[in-house]
Write a protein that binds this DNA or RNA. Sequence first.
DNA 1: ACGTGTGAAGTCGTTCACAGCG
DNA 2: CGCTGTGAACGACTTCACACGT
Lengths: 223, 223
Amino acid sequence: MESSNHEAIPEPVVRRLSLYLRQLEIFKLSGKLTISSKSLGQSLNLTDAQVRKDLTWFGQFGRAGIGYKVDDLISRVRRILGTDTARNVLLVGAGNLGRALCAYKGFEEKGFKIAAVFDRDAISISKARDGESAKSDALQTVPVQPMSQLKETVLRLDIHLAILAVPADQAQDVADDLVDAGISGILNFAPVLLRVPKRVAVNAVDLAVELEQLLFQVNFSRG
Amino acid sequence: MESSNHEAIPEPVVRRLSLYLRQLEIFKLSGKLTISSKSLGQSLNLTDAQVRKDLTWFGQFGRAGIGYKVDDLISRVRRILGTDTARNVLLVGAGNLGRALCAYKGFEEKGFKIAAVFDRDAISISKARDGESAKSDALQTVPVQPMSQLKETVLRLDIHLAILAVPADQAQDVADDLVDAGISGILNFAPVLLRVPKRVAVNAVDLAVELEQLLFQVNFSRG
DNA sequence: ACGTGTGAAGTCGTTCACAGCG
DNA sequence: CGCTGTGAACGACTTCACACGT
């Protein structure tokens, strides 16, 4: 549909595409109707050539001498990434991190709705309900369900993506359950490498690793 | 000290180093005294050659015919990454995400201690104190301070790293404050690109982008 | 003149394959 | 023989430089 050579798109290109979109929305707010690869690149510390090369993986969106139409490019990039239509996702793990993710505004701004929350045991479930009084906590509107209702909910709400925010020692088991329930993508916050069938995609975020990487940058790459 | 050619270490190598460490600690728990590049690689879906090449950036840690001594490699990698000694970090932003990060166990396991928490206004401060009753919330032990106390606290607690978990529209201002207070590294959770002096390192984690990337993987890279 | 799209060149990172040690 | 360390071959990504459209 959007691209002619699906398989071959380099990962770094897709990552930058998300950043282009983020930046384009800022340019849109500031009233710019058109944007050149040069200024878009500068706003992200990238070269203009890089921006153009990345975009031409998906088509020819620009006009020579003018640049790219901001509105148009936003909707094209959204369509490429798949965020042009809203979709339900589920969350497993109603601990501190899970509850924060549940309330995170950034997801809904991109069209992701946390439509179901699961947790292993009733302790977390009640804790999640009692503890928090802030109005922004989505756990007030989305009840925490036991894992036994996973499969049924996935089907009913047409969910394809899961956010995994459980302790490391439960992560693989829960991942197995998610796979079994028919999920096709997992955003994994547990510090373990998940083993899943090839049909399932995994994107891992290890918060402690990110801090560790920062520390190394500070100690070496600089003075 | 550890390496002879500091400047040149590729970023991907450093990222994998963190994963090696994570995996080595698992091997250690399971009682293994020695590990080959092959099994370490397999546990992370990497080739043995990759593991060896990565490690030799920092020295020759292995023994031909045997492999690497698990204990030894752990402490060497920790020293390389800088997590062999504990250190204080600070957090700005006592919203949902900030509070979750504050309570996150993974940081302290790597020797990071969130020694100070800051927030812009008193509303968040009181909210942070009242809202949460779970025993694991570090905000009970670490009081939330106003930004005016930033510089003094950084000096007093010898803090070099900051975690930034404020809304996008405040992120650059807070980053400026952090730079001004003498911070040398920022872990940025706000969905904006921070402009900082060259002496300051930034590592950015955009949660919505991570979910977006997963969606793309699901839609294309697979059937 | 400005700015895109793109082959060609260049750079960076990974994989290969083997010498050499335990 | 198993396994590391490493140059050499390979492949992937980025930058260059320019033809062409506005």
